[in-house]
Design a protein around this nucleic acid. Structure first.
Lengths: 230, 230, 230, 230
DNA sequence: GATGAATGAGGGTTCATTCAT
DNA sequence: AATGAATGAACCCTCATTCAT
């Protein structure tokens, strides 16, 4: 019944993960050095490699685990709710609360996708697609049932998720507004947006002049002479 | 009327700026190396220093110039429009078109603020505040006149700007939808959101269980042992 | 009793210090590159940073340690000697022997103070002041007791120390003269100087025309456009 | 009788020389950059090459000209003075006044010999030898005539020159002491030293323990793997 | 499970110098 | 006489990573 000393390993692994999340959150993946991380958990930097294969996989693990957690919890919250409007409210509330509770993870998952290499990014993008699919499904269902007025469910999905996720750019626990108030404020915007507030008489954008394209926007995706990531 | 063979300062400066924008857009500021940038414009990396003081100031110049341009053009577009609803439509259309036309600049300005050092970041954040102020003013004015139903103008401002700005995460020129269609879709969401679609019976978030806080979210702002940016 | 193959931290640290002293001695601090130093001890240049924080601190460590050693040993040699003349002889002998034995350190400590940054220089200058204080104390004591004839003890201190230290500009072990002979020769000059040889009839310098100041000597301390040292 | 505009060139050359002296004096030859120098005289750095072949030759010109000036003026001052004691006084006074008047040149000539390449250094060392020869001649002459008591004229020469030259390490115009007072103080030390003050009973250094040689002083002149300067 | 010495590549940056204009 | 664009080499330094112990 003796407690194995070795269980230390699991604790260290957890400490690394937590410190990694905080460091990436605060400085960015590229700007975080493994020396910093090691110092944070009281190790030599070389010792970190007992706990991950390389810096990249640390990021991937964090982001993947986060996305799976997000997806799983969202599905759990939506389970059993049938009505599209109710489902949308549940989704909004879940998304907001989750983001307010896990600022760091969420921030990383949104900002550091670019730092993932091809293969890892594909996995994460896939998970993200599935998560977006939840909302898109709700919007399509509601549109079919006539309760939502959404012309472009795909666009609306991106728009709503961007809006809700934006909370992690300004929210700080202990601010003036309670989480409930924030959820209400955001949800009102979403519900209003998809149930059509004041009807729009005609094309809103017609009379406006287009913005001229600047010179420095050549064909996107043009390859760089040397790959940025070895 | 002799044409200079290779060296034309102004042209080189412009080429550096454009290549810099593209490289930062595609790889991120931290991940872009000045050797890469120099290669892109056909120079030695040391020669770049004829055109900027250091890597940081290149980023700052790009972001500052962009923000001032954005702010100036927004104000120009709004000039003379009085009605809050009309102003809101103008704002949405302007913001979206601008973002669709300057994906790279916009993306950088949103993603790389973190890479700016203290002093530079303050300047950019100030410009951003002023830009947000435009929208917040519109929302407050509309709320006072009773045409908008917005409980928390600050939150609504953040929410709407996040939503509109999110377009630079997915939009690619030449897609299925025209810029007009995209503007319409987004604008409908915004207008609906602030004019209140279907009224919300009661607090929307009440019945939902709060998300448990994860272990790895200690007090934010905890100092890192060694500053990431010297 | 296993012998480590290659890596022995303490030994490497010592090797770096020694090679650093030699390289700075021979080429000067500014002219010595860390690549050179690394090559000298069989390392990659980056590996040196396990052993010091930066090039500047390597220099500082060398100079500070040297000055403390010098000061400590001088005080030890003088301990218990009371008579000013005897103390002066001890000081001369100590200083000369020390300098003949540690040419490189001494040379560095005298030539590279300028390469130390503000804070480090202050420390070293402080140590140097204390060392000079030893000699000045001896001269003042001797003057009070009437055994020395020294009008300006401060000037005499600088003069004597310059004279004695100058040995590191020409001395090479194995030369024609033994260390004893050299010590005797220098000490005779010092003792004669402060005990007053042939009395000086009148002001020695009066009849001589002053040297005209050259044009290139404006007010000293005029600031340089850009600081040499960041 | 019109003033040629081109005479500007000579003025610029002079300005460069003066600024160069000041910059090298204050920062050291290695630490001075040609950009700094160019800025000081209001030129582009490339334009400096109209006035010298390279950085090295700028230093050489400064040092050589200074040494020749020093030597010439010393010889002039000594001309016609026959008596060794008088000659010694003249030498001391000349040397001190010259050094107090040309701090920058003198400092450079003493500190930057190491920065001269082989061939240039040889020239300067030759001039320095000739200058030392003046003093050595005086000492030998005085010793032969019995007015000086100098066992090792070579050592005494080095010692005295080091002592006198040391003034440029601390002297600042406008200090407490006049140049006359300083000259007197130093000259008294020199004259006393060579005319033998209190006779030294026996070998002064005999009873003192030798200083142990440190480990970091291998054979001097050991070549460096790579030449410091290309 | 962890150390600590070391690597090798690459980072941003500065420099003396060249040369067409 | 001077500019200003550019070079190419070298600088100090940091990094992720490896591995014998």
């Amino acid at each position: 019944m003796a407690r194995t000393i070795g269980s230390n390993g699991a604790r260290t692994a957890q400490a690394i993960r937590q410190a990694g999340v905080q460091l990436i959150y605060r400085h960015g993946y590229e700007a975080m050095s493994l020396r910093q991380l090691a110092a944070e958990v009281g190790l030599q930097s070389g010792s970190l490699y007992k706990y991950f294969d390389n810096k990249q996989s640390l990021l991937f693990d964090i982001v993947r685990d986060h996305m799976e957690d997000l997806l799983g919890k969202a599905e759990a919250d939506l389970a059993g709710v049938e009505d599209p409007l109710a489902r949308l409210k549940v989704f909004c509330a879940f998304h907001l609360r989750y983001h307010m509770t896990r600022l760091a993870h969420v921030f990383i998952a949104n900002m550091e996708i670019r730092s993932l290499d091809e293969a890892h990014r594909a996995v994460v993008v896939g998970l993200r697609r599935r998560y977006e699919g939840l909302l898109e499904g709700i919007l399509r269902q509601g549109a079919e049932l006539g309760v939502f007025e959404v012309r472009e469910p795909k666009v609306a999905t991106y728009a709503i998720i961007s809006m809700l996720t934006g909370i992690c750019m300004w929210y700080l626990p202990g601010g003036r507004l309670s989480q409930d108030e924030i959820v209400d404020a955001y949800t009102a915007l979403v519900i209003g947006g998809v149930t059509g507030g004041t009807p729009l008489a005609e094309s809103l954008s017609a009379p406006l002049a287009p913005v001229a394209a600047p010179a420095d926007l050549p064909a996107r995706g043009k390859p760089v002479r040397k790959a940025a990531r070895a």
